[in-house]
Amino acid sequence: MLIRHKPEIRSSEITPEHNYLNRRGFISSAALAGTSLLFATSCSGADNKNSAPTGNHTNLDVNSLEDITRYNNFYEFGLNKEDPEKFSGAFNASPWSVTIDGEAEITGTFNFEDIIGPHSIEERIYRLRCVEAWSMVVPWNGIPLGKLLQRFKPTSKAKFVSFETVYRPEEMPGQRAKVLDFPYREGLTIDEAMHPLTLLATGLYGADLPNQNGAPLRLIVPWKYGFKGIKSIVRISFTETRPYTTWSDAIPTEYGFYANVNPAVDHPRWSQARERRIGSGLFAEKQPTLMFNGYADEVASLYAGLDLTRYF
């Protein structure tokens, strides 16, 4: 017997985080204005708490902070979904620096504060679709990657942007296991990197990124599978040729460089037509996966004329 049960109160609505969507109302109220400044300080230097909402995200049902921080693929901390939360305690995301190199006029190694400082932190609520056919909706804080990259004046030779995760096997037990060719690397075409939806996230739910979510700086490309969203970034390089990308170079038959969310192109071992929405409970059906994860209007033009079955 199947009990088709749609809970009247969704789990996301009974979490305290729901209130967070209205918190600006509280914060801006005169009574709290003074005290909020006390809490607005952030150890990382990114003011995630006072980020301004941008983009249209009114009708998405946001996952709880608990779901987002306890169900992670971050192989640097272990292979199981709960491992990153369990084993990332020893990781130290502050101080942090990022090296910018390659085909740009301004290159060098910069403190996290100098990289992020000139930008105002925005709030973006995005769908996240994992290549493993599960999904979440996450309220990120961060800056559009394109705005940041422009500051370093990429040259005409910059056709791609590549990213590298920190390599600290002493703090990241998963790196000692050598399951992947660490350090993790990812890449985008320059057009993808400059797209206004592409976010360099510094926070989650108005607070600094937790270690298991890629502290202190990670990539979010909402129309691509989650593995493109490289975490704990220490290097950003402008390159003329397509860079090495960890998953697609490890198993090219299963993971592509583009990795655009596409319900019509299955993974060789499972269907990508539907997805399991995390937090929907035991009796929810899988939901249909949307082309480009629902961002087709914004990004489909990037791939005009490209055979998406071949270049998956």
Binding site: E66, K81, E82, W134
Partner: peptide, 12 residues
């Protein structure tokens, strides 16, 4: 029951 939980993806 008690502290036992299936986690964010119970079906999996």
């Amino acid at each position: 029951v008690g502290p036992l939980q299936l986690g964010p993806n119970p079906i999996e």
